[in-house]
C-alpha cells in the first residue's frame, strides 16, 4: 500500500500495463512532452519510446484508428482531452466500437480504452464541464467506468487495459489531485462490482463519480446528528452492480441517488427506477434523486456553484428523508 494521487494511480496503471503488453499503444492530443491536457502521461514517452502516438486534433480519427488497431487484437488507449469532446467521436464509439463484437458474431475482440476527463471544474463554461456516462451506458456493448478514488482509478483502469471490450473510462477532472491508498501490485478492480464506501443503517446514498467524496462529507455531518448513512459507489455504471445496491437498500429502507449529471434520462434515474421496480417492498419512502439542474453549466462562480449538487444539498435532502418528510 502506498499513498497515491488519482492522477498518478492512472499513470501507474498505464505504466504497469505498457511494461508487460508490448503491443499496447496510446493515442491522443498533446501527449508529448506535456503528458496530455491533465498531465497523466508525463514522462511516458521516454519510458516507452514509440508507444505514445501524438495525434492531430481529430477525435473521430483518434478513436477509429485506435479501434482499428484494437480490431487486430492489440490494446489501444485513446485519450480524449475533455469528456465534452466525446461528441466528436460518437460514431466511432457508438456505431463502431460498441457493435463490432456483436455484428461480427463474436469474431472480433475490441480491446479499446477511451479515457476522458469529465465533470465540472472551475469556471470553464458549458463545453468543458459535462459528464456523459448516461450516453454511453445507454449503448449495449460498452463498459463505462466512473472511478471516484485513486484505488478505483488505478484498479479499474488495470482491468480496462486487459479487457477485450471497449471501455469508456471517465475520470473526474476535479479528482486528479485527490490522494488515497492503493496497493503497489495486484490492484485491479473488477467491473460490475460496487464498493460500499461507508457502512450505515439509516439511508443508502448511491453516489456516482465525484459525488462519492461529497456524499462522504455529508455523511460526516449527519453522523454528528446521530444519523448513519451508507454510501455505495457503483464504480462502473455499465455493467452496474444492482445486487450491492439492493443489499444496502434492504438494510436501510431508504435510498437517495446522487449524481453530477442532469437527472433527465440519467444513470441515477435508471438506478432509482430499478430500486423502485425491484425493491419497492423494502422501501419506507420514495427513492429520491439529487442531480445537477437541467441547464448548461454557467461560467460565473455564483451560478456555477448552484449548477452542481454540493455537500449541503445532500445533507438537507437526507435530513428530510430521514424525518419522513421527503
Amino acid at each position: 500500500m502506498s499513498e497515491i494521487s488519482y492522477r498518478d494511480a492512472i499513470r501507474k496503471a498505464l505504466i504497469d500495463h505498457l511494461s508487460v503488453d508490448h503491443d499496447a499503444v496510446i493515442l491522443g492530443e498533446d501527449l508529448i512532452p506535456q503528458g496530455g491536457s491533465f498531465g497523466v502521461h508525463k514522462g511516458l514517452d521516454e519510458m516507452f519510446p514509440g508507444r505514445l502516438l501524438e495525434t492531430p486534433i481529430a477525435e473521430g480519427a483518434i478513436v477509429s484508428i485506435a479501434l482499428g488497431y484494437a480490431m487486430t487484437g492489440k490494446t489501444a488507449v485513446a485519450e480524449i482531452m475533455f469528456g465534452d469532446f466525446l461528441t466528436c467521436c460518437m460514431d466511432e464509439i457508438v456505431n463502431q466500437a460498441a457493435k463490432i463484437r456483436y455484428m461480427s458474431g463474436g469474431q472480433a475482440d475490441t480491446p479499446l480504452v477511451v479515457r476522458a476527463p469529465v465533470g465540472l471544474a472551475k469556471n470553464i463554461g458549458a463545453q468543458h464541464s459535462q459528464t456523459f456516462e448516461a450516453w454511453f451506458a445507454h449503448v449495449p456493448g460498452l463498459v463505462v467506468a466512473l472511478p471516484s478514488t485513486p484505488a478505483d482509478a488505478g484498479g479499474l483502469l488495470a482491468t480496462a487495459l486487459v479487457s477485450r471490450d471497449p471501455v469508456l473510462f471517465l475520470e473526474n477532472k476535479m479528482l486528479y489531485p485527490a490522494k488515497g491508498e492503493m496497493a503497489d501490485a495486484d490492484y485491479a478492480v473488477p467491473f460490475g462490482s460496487a464498493r460500499v464506501a461507508r457502512d450505515g443503517d439509516d439511508l443508502s446514498v448511491i453516489a456516482l463519480g465525484r459525488m462519492v467524496p461529497i456524499a462522504l462529507e455529508a455523511a460526516e455531518v449527519l453522523a454528528d446528528e446521530g444519523f448513519s448513512l451508507e454510501i455505495v459507489d457503483p464504480r462502473t455504471v455499465a455493467p452496474l452492480d444492482f445486487e450491492t445496491i439492493f443489499t444496502s437498500v434492504e438494510k436501510t429502507s431508504r435510498a437517495l441517488v446522487v449524481e453530477e449529471a442532469t437527472a433527465f434520462c440519467s444513470v441515477g434515474s435508471e438506478i432509482a427506477a430499478t430500486i423502485s421496480e425491484c425493491r419497492f417492498m423494502s422501501l419506507d419512502g420514495p427513492v429520491r434523486r439529487l442531480s445537477s439542474p437541467h441547464v448548461p453549466k454557467p461560467f460565473t462562480p455564483p451560478l456555477e456553484t448552484l449548477a452542481i449538487p454540493g455537500r449541503d444539498d445532500i445533507v438537507a435532502l437526507a435530513r428530510r428523508m430521514l424525518a419522513g418528510q421527503a
Binding site: G105, G106, G192, P239
Partner: peptide, 13 residues
C-alpha cells in the same frame, strides 16, 4: 457476444 464481461442486465422486479 454483446460484451465479454457480464453485460448490462436489468434485474427482474
Amino acid at each position: 457476444d454483446v460484451t465479454e464481461v457480464t453485460p448490462v442486465r436489468r434485474p427482474a422486479a
